[in-house]
Design a binder for these strands. Structure first.
Length: 288
DNA sequence: CATTTATCCTGTAAGC
DNA sequence: TGCTTACAGGATAAAT
């Protein structure tokens, strides 16, 4: 569910509220939420206890808290929010949320960190950090907010693929941070159809596409992210308001903000794609 | 090798 | 009202 802007909103909140604090106690309330910590939940808790949080970092949709030692080597608490994961900062003693999965208490006795996740597709684990990245993040491409993001290399990578444009945008090993919402919004802004074969993308169209990807992500971040319901909230439980700025995603039947043609919904990989049939005509030879 | 699909979960909304 | 079905912001193992 959360894409780059939503995860970045969470990261900013964690940077403010947990940096410099020392973990005192860890409570795992659902084993599935730490299933990626292969050594098990007891080891997960033991590894966190007594550790100080040094920084909150992110690549794409992955989020992690550096523990103790600065620099490239060390360990981090890695989080992926999956479809419904939340991080919340709550006063100790506040009522447990229905889907509270993991609780971290701190040595200062201050507000605790809670991982809440209805569908449990997300999870936490303690990972080794190599060259500045937790091991499971090594294969994730840089995201458009990364200062070293290389537009031309990504365009070349997209054109090298033998697939459709939207599938390429969603491939986190090509460019990270983009999910179903921002893929549709970017394709709409670029007036491109997601079924377009990647190989036919011109260099100019590629540059336009990455430019609008960056724009939509930046605007969504400024709005605090996109929330349709209480499933995405920041660490204080507040919703973002970028949903009011969506031109295509979830707008089936509503007029395209550019040409007033009704936005169309179509099936895509067990979910949906939203396009303007006039601004984004289907390619003559769509990728299957 | 690259690419596509099926699946992990729970809750909500729509349709009958 | 109740029951059934479709769908939801993601990633990945397994299949093609």
């Amino acid at each position: 569910m959360p894409e780059l802007p939503e995860v970045e909103v969470v990261r900013l909140g964690l940077a403010e509220h947990v940096t410099g604090r020392t973990v005192a106690a860890v409570e795992v309330r659902h084993p599935r939420s730490v299933r990626r910590h292969l050594a098990g939940e007891l080891d997960f808790a033991a590894r966190l206890s007594g550790r100080q949080v040094r920084a909150a970092r992110r690549r794409g949709k992955y989020l992690w808290l550096d523990l103790d030692s600065d620099g490239a080597a060390g360990e981090a608490l890695l989080a992926h929010l999956g479809m419904s994961g939340q991080m919340r900062i709550q006063p100790p003693g506040a009522a447990d949320e229905t889907h509270l999965r993991v609780r971290l208490q701190f040595a200062d006795g201050g507000p605790e960190l809670r991982f809440i996740d209805q569908r449990t597709f997300g999870g936490l684990s303690v990972e080794n950090v190599v060259d500045g990245l937790p091991t499971p993040v090594a294969h994730i491409a840089r995201d458009p907010m990364d200062p070293h993001f290389d537009h031309d290399a990504v365009i070349a990578g997209i054109r090298r693929r033998r697939t459709s444009l939207k599938r390429a945008l969603l491939d986190q090993t090509l460019v990270s941070g983009i999910g179903n919402i921002y893929a549709d919004e970017a394709l709409w802004r670029a007036r491109l159809h997601g079924a377009r074969p990647t190989a036919t993308l011109t260099a100019t169209q590629g540059r336009t596409l990455l430019t609008v990807v960056t724009e939509v992500i930046t605007e969504a971040l400024a709005a605090g992210g996109t929330s349709f319901d209480a499933l995405y909230v920041n660490i204080n439980g507040a919703s973002g308001y970028f949903d009011r700025s969506l031109a295509a995603y979830g707008q089936a039947g509503r007029p395209c903000p550019r040409c007033s043609t009704a936005i169309q919904r179509e099936a895509f990989m067990n979910r949906s794609s939203y396009t303007c049939p006039r601004c984004q005509p289907r390619p003559r030879h769509p990728h299957p």
